[in-house]
Each structure stands twice: as C-alpha cells, then as structure tokens.
Nucleic acid binder design. Structure first.
Lengths: 235, 235
DNA sequence: AGTTACACGTGACCC
DNA sequence: TGGGTCACGTGTAAC
C-alpha cells in the first residue's frame, strides 16, 4: 500500500504556517507517529480568542475537510478511469495499453469513423422503393452538432410542411435540403444543425419524429399503391 | 503559480530518514528558504565510508533523478491532456467540459458509430454495376479486430484464389464469406479477423490489396463488357 | 462555505 | 539500473 506524505499540510495548518510549535519541535513533517491525528495543539492557529469553538474544534474540521477532499478526488479518478476502461473494451487493445496510447487510438478511431460516415452518407440520393430513415450525427463545426437526416417514403403534399414542423419543434435549423422524386416516391436528405446545448440524444428524438411521420404517411389512403418489396430483387 | 510541498522528501532523503540532522534542526520540511537545493549536509545518509564518491555526490544524483522523474511525469500528463483536447475538438463540446464528461461522450460516440457502421454494412448484398471496395473495421470481440470487407467487380475464375492469397498474406482469418453473382458480376462480403497485434492500419493494407486485385481484374480481356456508368442513373 | 475539477510532485512498481 | 506508467494526496482556483 502506498503511503504518501499525508497530513503534513494539515500539520502545518494546525501548528501554524512554518512557525515552530510546541509538541512538534524538531520533527520532520512527514514523520509519522501513532495518534498524530488526535493530538491537539491548535490554539495558536487562529488569532487569540477566535479558536474557542467548543463544538467543532478547528483541527477536527480541517481533518474532516481533508478527508472529504481526498475521497472526492479518489471518486473523480475512479470515474475517469472507468471510462477509460470502457474505451479499452470498445477498442482493439488489451487492458495493459497505457492511457496515452489508448487515447491516441480513440482519437484515431473517432476521426476514422467520422470520415466513414461522411463517405457513406454521400450514397443514396435517389428515392428507393423501400421506406427508410437514417439519422447520422456528423461533423460539429463551430461547436454545434450537425445531423444528416435521410427520409425516403411515399410522396404526399403535406410531407414537407410536416417535416418543417418537426424540425421547428426540435429546435433544429436546416442548413441544406436535397429532394428527389421518382415514380411517386420522394427522398429527402436534410443537413440540420442543433444548438450548442443539444446532446447526442437529439439524434434519437429526430429519428422517432421521422418514424412517426412515416407511419402517418403509410396509413394514409395514398399508399395503396403497388409496392415493390425490395429494389434489389429487381435489379 | 502552484507551489506544492516540493523537495521535502528529498530533504528527508538527504538528511536521513526522520533523523534530526545538522542544518535542518527544527525546520518544518515545507519551510522554504533560498538555496535549499544547494546546501550540502548529506554525509550522514550513506553509512560512513560509502559516501565518498567524489565525481557524483549522492545528493546531486538524487536531485537529478527527482528532477527527471518530475519532468517525465509532466510530459506524460501533457501527452494525455493533448489527446483529451483533440477529442474535445472532435466532439460537440466546448473546451470547458470536464474530463469525465468528455470521456463519457467519447464512449457514447464510439459505441454509436460502431452501431451505425454495422447497420450500414447490412446493406448492398447484391452485386452492383459499378466496381466497389469498402473495408470497415467493425467489432472486436475477444480483443481481436474484425473487418468487414466488401468487393464488387467483374466475375472471373481466378478471383477467389487471388482473394484467399491476399487474406493469407495479410494474416487475416476469414470468419464468414457471402458471395452473390448476377449478370457476370460478383459481390463478395467477407468477415475477417485480424490478430491481436494488428493495428487499425491493417484496414488500409487490405483496402490497397483489394484495389490492386480489382485493377488486375479490370485490365483483363474479360472486362470488355458493356459497362453502365452508374446504377442509380437507370433506376 | 462547501463542492468540484485540475495540475502537481511523489512513492511504488515494472521492464 | 534508469525510464516509463500509475495512483495517490495535496494546493489551488472557480463557482
């Protein structure tokens, strides 16, 4: 077990800042002896007459504060390290890879995956025969999160107004919109920006909203159209 | 500037472990005074007769070691923090988000992107009219990296042996292979596993190898077939 | 004032 | 043995 120079600043705190004091004379600060925490010689820390708080002696208060501080710091470390362990399990590396290398891998991976998704989202601009929703959280220039939302479904007159309503209710601003119609079907590809305070959860909100929009569309009368099951099957 | 209780353990080291010594008598260890690092009273640390190394006095060696240690640790901290800053710039968060929250976001993002790519790679099982190569690094169950490699090109008899040769040379083991042929074209979807020691760079090696395979194929006589420029244009 | 997060120097441990 | 990483307790600043 590791034993650092614990309590030496408390010692200084109790005995007065660098002033040689009764009971500690000549002892190096890190010299440990039993009962160190319970010996009392603190009357000289506060100016005379201030230290007379009988219920909570200053050295006890100081000790408690130090203990809290120590434990809080330990919790913080554990929190950080648990996340690092999670990342270790998420990436191709064993448990012995050191923190810096692990984080380097993480950086590389996040970059790589970002490229991938932006490449992938270049595909599929024409409407397909199958209903589709994809919401990808992409880049985040100047701090705000950018989504790429793609929606492919039956075309209907009130689709665009509904879409606009959804985006407005989710406080998303549309940066770009591409639309393509073919044979009664429509594909919308939207680039939308979320506010700075939006979390990554907004992706799911948008996804659910679009899903309900699509369900609304498919339940309408207009969708009694001949449906080809899978575009790929007729290639 | 922060000034911790520096050198107090070196002080103890030099003056002897807890033993009251000449020149330091009665001073608390954290009491700072000018020239503390240069005063010499170390002849009592080593047993008598051992400390007579004229070229490298023990306290200098200790000081140098401590200095090195301190600086190395600082470098390590800086390395880790620079990676964290990089991640901060890569994710939708400002520079004031604390380490633990940042890492939580990173974990979430890596997970999310992993799901995305695995979803996306479900698509496109039938051969298309355009030549395509995609290599995606996906999951890594039990520590080893799993790739999904997709190759779509003209069908030819020696394609599969060539493919096997490539995988063997890159020390990749094939877990699953899906193949589909249609109209003289073939799509191969391979799930391959890399060794534990493979880095993420293996993705690019595989990608390049497949690219050369594809070029070999297109330069052969068999590829004088009518080529439709883009599948999407004839939808 | 009490909490929170960070950087720091240091002892322990491992090649 | 140095050169590296890690966990720890602590000083300090912000809120």
């Amino acid at each position: 077990m590791h034993q650092p120079a614990e309590n030496q600043d408390l010692y200084r705190f109790i005995t007065g800042n660098g002033v040689i004091n009764v009971g500690t004379y000549g002892f190096p600060a890190n010299c440990e002896f039993p009962g160190m925490q319970s010996f009392s010689c603190s009357s000289s820390y506060y100016p005379l007459g201030v230290s007379g708080l009988a219920d909570t002696p200053p050295q006890d208060r100081a000790l408690a504060a130090l203990k809290n501080h120590k434990e809080a710091e330990k919790r913080r470390r554990e929190r950080i390290n648990s996340h690092l362990d999670k990342l270790r399990s998420l990436l191709p590396c064993n448990s012995k890879t050191d923190k810096a290398s692990l984080l380097a891998k993480v950086v590389q991976r996040v970059k790589e995956l970002k490229e991938q998704t932006s490449e992938i989202t270049e595909l599929e601009t024409f409407p397909s025969e199958t209903d589709e929703i994809t919401v990808l959280s992409g880049d985040h220039s100047d701090g705000r999160l950018i989504f790429k939302a793609s929606l492919c479904c039956e075309d209907r007159t009130d689709l665009i107004p509904d879409l606009i309503e959804i985006l407005k209710s989710l406080h998303l601003t549309t940066l770009r919109a591409e639309m393509a119609t073919l044979g009664g079907r429509i594909r919308n590809v939207l680039i939308v920006a979320a506010d700075k305070d939006h979390s990554i959860e907004s992706v799911h909100f948008l996804q659910n909203a679009l899903k309900s929009l699509l369900e609304r569309s498919s339940s309408s009368e207009r969708s009694k159209r001949r449906r080809i099951l899978d575009r790929k099957m007729i290639m």
